[in-house]
């Protein structure tokens, strides 16, 4: 069941567009903002509000990289794996994170704190390698700093 707040926010998004369906990406964002991810149940409820089938909404949800259809940790680490970060050695950052957190891409630490995902170019190639944790962008990342960076996100 969507909460009253989620329903109100989704209705607001619907009011801004000429067709209900056009609000579907915003609606998915609303759900994810509240729950961290979009469950099958939330997806069905959201689809009903938008006058879409669950399948149609899922086809949109799964198309985009940043709508999560599986539970994620409290903090999502998005590690840039595109060309400039590759040239500047992002693979060392990746290996360190995987070893330190004992997870691979797509996994969440057992304490539910971090999910690690690869991400396409973050558009900060002059300060590579780069990663984002939630809304925070980290640039010119070195292995030495990683422990401190992770420490910021409890």
């Amino acid at each position: 069941m969507l909460t009253t707040e989620e329903i109100a926010q989704i209705e607001h998004e619907i009011s801004l567009v000429p067709q209900k369906k056009a609000a579907c990406i915003e609606a998915l964002k609303v759900v994810q903002q509240h729950r961290g991810w979009v469950s099958d149940e939330s997806l069905k409820d959201t689809a009903t509000m938008l006058g879409m089938s669950a399948e149609e909404l899922d086809s949109v949800a799964t198309f985009y990289n940043l709508i999560f259809r599986q539970p994620v940790g409290r903090h999502v680490i998005l590690l840039c794996d595109s060309i400039s970060c590759w040239v500047m050695g992002y693979e060392q950052i990746r290996d360190y994170l995987m070893q330190k957190l004992q997870i691979t891409y797509g996994e969440t630490t057992p304490d539910g704190r971090f999910t690690l995902l690869p991400n396409v170019c973050l558009g900060t190639c002059d300060r590579a390698p780069a990663l984002m944790i939630d809304d925070h962008l980290y640039q010119n990342v070195t292995i030495e700093e990683l422990d401190v960076i992770l420490h910021h996100h409890r």
């Binding site: 067709q19 056009a22 609000a23 990406i25 915003e26 949109v60 985009y64 396409v120």
Partner: peptide
């Protein structure tokens, strides 16, 4: 947006804007 390279192509971008 919610992340997909295709969104930079102008007609794909319009589809994304239409949800």
């Amino acid at each position: 947006g919610v992340g997909r390279y295709m969104c930079g192509e102008e007609t794909a971008l319009l589809n994304a804007l239409e949800g």
